[in-house]
Structures are given as C-alpha cells and as structure tokens.
Amino acid sequence: MKVTIDGQTIEVPEGTTILQAARMLGPEVAPPTMCYYSKLETSGGYCRTCIVKVTKGSEKDPRPMPKPVASCRTMVMDGMEVQNNTSQDVLDARKGVVEFLLANHPLDCPVCDQAGECHLQDLSFEHGAEGTRFEFERRTFKKIDLGPYIQLHMTRCILCYRCVKVADQLTPHRYHGVMNRGDVSEISTYIEHAIDNEFSGNVIDVCPVGALTDKTFRFKSRVWFTKPMDAHRDCPTCSGRVTLWYKGDDVLRVTGRKDAFGEVDEFICNTCRFETKKTSDWVIDGPKVVDHKSVISANHYLGNNQVPSFAFEVTKDYKQVNDLPVQPGSTVNQLDK
C-alpha cells in the first residue's frame, strides 16, 4: 500500500496506521504522540496531538476525510494522502491540543524530575503558545505513594492511559482504572494493587510526563547532568537490557532502553530497575545514543549521527573530497577509524 505523508511516499503493509507509516519515514515527518505507545495494545486515540489531515482517502475513494483524524488509530489506505506539518490547520489544531493539555498542568518543570526528558515539555516547545490563556485555578491532587518505589503525582497527569494499559497488559488481573470523569478524572489508587507485580515499574517509563516517578531517583539529579550507558545483565525475569544513568561513578537510576520516539524496546523488571544499582552488577554495552537536540548533555554525537556536511565545506579548500578518508553519509564512528 502506498501512502504519501507531507509529500513523501512510502510503501507499507496492510494494517499499518498513518502514524507507523510516518515513523518509518522518520522522526521529522512523524506526528508527536502523548498517549500512543506501540508496545501497548489499544493505546492511542486519547490525547489528539497526533491528528493529521487526510486530503485524499484512497485511490478508490479519493474524497478527503471531513475531520482531522488521530493518525495513531487510523489505518492507511492505498493511495492515501496525508498532511501533517505541511497543513496549517493541523498545526493550529495541534496548538489547541497543547493548550488544552497544559490548561490544568502545573508547569512545575523546575522541580519536576521528568524535566529534560518530558514529552509534554518537548511538545509545548515545538507546538505550544508562548503564554497561557487559562486564568483559573488549576486542578490539584495529593501525591500518592504506589508502594516503595513509585510515586503518583496526579496533578501532572495528562490522562494518556498508558500506565493503565501497562498494568492491564503486563499484570494478570484488572486491578485499576480511571476514576471519576471529565476534568476531575484520576488514575485510580487501585493501581496500588498492581505494585505487587514484578513489572510495575514500567509505568514510570511509559509515563510521558512527571506523574509517575521513580522514588529511588527523585530529586537525585537533573537528567541532563547524568550520563546514560546501555548495559545488560543476566536477569531471570526480564531481558535485562537497560540503560544506566550515571552521575560520576554512581548509577542513579535504571530505565528501559528508549528509542527515538521515547518508547522502551523491552519492558524490564523491578529488580533490574530498582535494586541493581552497582556498576559491578552490569555488563556495559557502551554509551547510549542521545538525540543531538536533547538537553541530556552526554553522547550527542555518537552512533549514526552523520558527519555534518560543513565538515566537508571546511576541508574541500585543502583537498579533493574524494581523497578524504570518509565520504558524505559516513558516520562519526567510521571517522574515528
């Protein structure tokens, strides 16, 4: 099936969503997501940040769709044409969604542990307005301790339902859910029951904001002062493939390995996450690749970051480009060799 997103065409298998197709094209084309999580079934559709405009339904039925659609829950049709960043309507609607998401958000980034790796922060930076028009009291909740390791701070929650789905899909029973409705909905404290589970810590990784935080890491350090390293260990419960976040020689926290879209590759167990915090417990795989736009200061230029083209601009005065040991498109790692 062929789909064109922002003028770029890609061939995808049937049953692909618009969002997945856009992600295949790359992070620049992909709409931002707050609630969709590819590893969780039935996630997505709630936050509306990934809305796109379908200007051509399909080859068979070329009519455009009347309303903007949530790209995470809309399947691609053959010949579909989609506008994301190229449509002013979409950008405007997205700006509206960001405004709604921030309306009751406390904006306490300076004291929030998620700051620096918060999806809502990134989203507001890219799509938000400069100020707020919300001039009323914001809703607040009391902090809740979900067992010894996790703290729930509902005030920051944007109700993406990801943690609900984690507890639903990684634990054997349906213990929890959302209580109340409308803008006073909250993640139910019944989630505390899910705490008994070995995989409960994953709710922290999937939380796009600072509503669910790691109590073993709270207020230890800003994330941009830590250095992430990929590591693994032989774990009887999970894959044991994690990212360690160092400050000096200390492992401050352990998380799952996240990809370019902020999603973990594999869910990890609580033992790995909370109780295995010595370097000697782990086999280090190497520094984690951090996107060069991230505020996390370490490892910006690792891995597949391509040699910036200006490098060739500088050198071409001296030498023919063909004589260089590396070519445009080669990676920094190759340059080292």
Binding site: G45, Y46, C47, R48, G96, V97, F100, L101, A103, N104, F134, F136, I158, L159, Y161, V178, N180, R181, G182, D183, V184, S185
Partner: peptide, 21 residues
Amino acid sequence: YHHESCGQCSPCREGTGWMEK
C-alpha cells in the same frame, strides 16, 4: 457538558471545563 464529559480525550476533557469557567 463539563459535568458529562467522560475525560477520555483531551480537547473535550479540558475544553468543556474551561468554557464553563
């Protein structure tokens, strides 16, 4: 509408309350 919004998707959840205020 503020009272009856289910709170599932963000524009309605936050918007209905905001309009009422």
